[in-house]
Computed example of a mutant assay.
Amino acid sequence: MAAEAHGEEAGGLVFHPMDQFIVKPFFGDGAVSWYTITNATVWMALAVLAVFALLVLGTSKRSVIPTRLQSVAELAYGFIYKMVEDICGKEGVKYFPYIMTLFMFIVFANFLGLLPMAFTPTSHIAVTAIMAFAVFFAVTILGFVKNGASFLGLFWVSSAPLALRPILALIEVISYFVRPVSHSIRLAGNMMAGHAVIKVFAGFAAIAAIAPLSVVAITAMYGLEILVSFIQAYVFTILTCVYLKDALHPHH
């Protein structure tokens, strides 16, 4: 605190772009326990409520001439349904509700995190890893339930020369178990990086000489983050569909 005060008195620039990612109690101060209502808890709950408001309340009337909310809900439904059908086939459509839930939660968590003073749950690997490992275990169990031991054919590249197949099998096994790591880090890393850059530009806005440039940079980064928020939800969802396809049709 003394160092920060000294920096401010000297006219220096003191800001901490990573402070926005600290999980802390939403009410008061103190240590965070498993039962503590934190900023992460509140914003995840708000994301769930937003999904409920759009998909349940927004479509409750089921009007022939849809309202704006119903139009958005129907557009999202059709978009994800077509993705699942195109990648996984008709057999994968039965798992559409789970994939739709993942997409909508990530989209709303990302977008709500762009609000001033908000918290972005998807910037934490603790959140994205739970979703990624849930997908990993679900598709692995499904693969063995649907295909039995033949699910292991996913790792055996029968189209390759016989001498290379053991090496490729080892590579396939490693890449398979790395999936949940890359799946979670990709989303969390992109969300954290964008928000940190915006905070850095916001810190420079305090310097009068470069404040206009800083505002322009913040505006540009904010627009980019809106795009990234959707793209990362899309990437997480489409990879889930690809993994599901491997579980349903494991043979190369």
Rank of each mutant, 00 (worst) to 15 (best):
F79C: 03
G148E: 09
S63F: 08
I198F: 03
E4W: 05
G153I: 02
Y243P: 00
A209N: 11
I231Y: 12
V48H: 11
G148F: 10
I171M: 09
V107G: 00
I218Y: 01
F103Y: 11
V48Q: 11
S33A: 09
K90A: 13
M18G: 07
V145C: 07
L57A: 12
E85K: 15
W43M: 07
L213D: 02
F96V: 00
A220P: 00
F119Q: 08
A206N: 14
L152K: 02
H183W: 06
R186Y: 05
Q70T: 01
W43G: 01
A138S: 13
I218F: 02
G223E: 04
V216A: 13
G58P: 00
V235M: 13
A76M: 07
A132S: 09
L13C: 04
D246I: 01
G223D: 05
A149T: 11
T219A: 15
E91R: 12
L54G: 03
V48L: 15
I226A: 13
V139N: 10
R165P: 00
V145A: 12
K82G: 07
S184D: 00
T120F: 04
P116Y: 13
P166Y: 03
M18C: 09
S123C: 07
F201A: 14
F144W: 10
A31V: 09
F133E: 08
L112D: 07
L224Q: 09
C88V: 01
T36A: 10
G194E: 06
L248C: 04
F201S: 09
M83C: 00
I65A: 11
W34L: 14
A73D: 04
S229D: 10
K146C: 06
C88N: 03
A188F: 03
K61D: 14
G58K: 05
Y176I: 09
E91Y: 01
V197F: 14
V173Q: 02
A2G: 12
G148P: 08
G189I: 08
P250Y: 01
L244K: 11
M83F: 00
L170G: 08
V215F: 10
V242R: 14
L213P: 00
A208M: 04
T59Q: 10
R186C: 02
I65R: 15
L224V: 08
V42L: 15
L213R: 05
A196V: 07
S150F: 01
A205S: 13
S63Y: 07
F15C: 14
I22D: 12
T36M: 08
W43K: 03
Q20G: 07
Y98Q: 11
F133G: 02
I22L: 14
Y243N: 07
V84L: 05
L164C: 10
F108V: 03
F155E: 11
T101G: 12
F108E: 08
H249E: 14
K24W: 04
T128H: 06
R186Q: 09
I65W: 11
